[in-house]
Amino acid sequence: MEPSHPRWPVAALVALAVTFENFWMWADDRLLFGLPSNLAYHLGLCVVATATLWAVVSRGWPSDRGKD
C-alpha cells in the first residue's frame, strides 16, 4: 500500500518528543505564572503542539487518493 501522507510531520513529532524531555529544569522548583515551572513548561508544550498540528493539517493534509 502506498501512503498518501507527507513525511515531514514525522520530523515535527520528533522535535516535540525531544523538547518533551526538559531535563535541564527538572530540579527547578520555582513557580512560573503561579505554577511549578516544569508544569508551566509542559502546558506550554501542549500549546506548541497545537500550533504544530495546525501547520500539519494546513500544509500537510494527505491526498484522499491513496493507492492500495
Binding site: H5, F20, C46, A49, L53
Partner: peptide, 20 residues
C-alpha cells in the same frame, strides 16, 4: 505534578499524530 508530563503532555503530543 510530574504526572501531568508523564501522561498528559505526552498524550497531547503523540495521539494527534497517531490520528493524523
Amino acid at each position: 505534578v510530574i504526572v501531568f508530563a508523564l501522561m498528559g503532555s505526552s498524550t497531547a503530543i503523540v495521539v494527534p499524530f497517531l490520528i493524523y
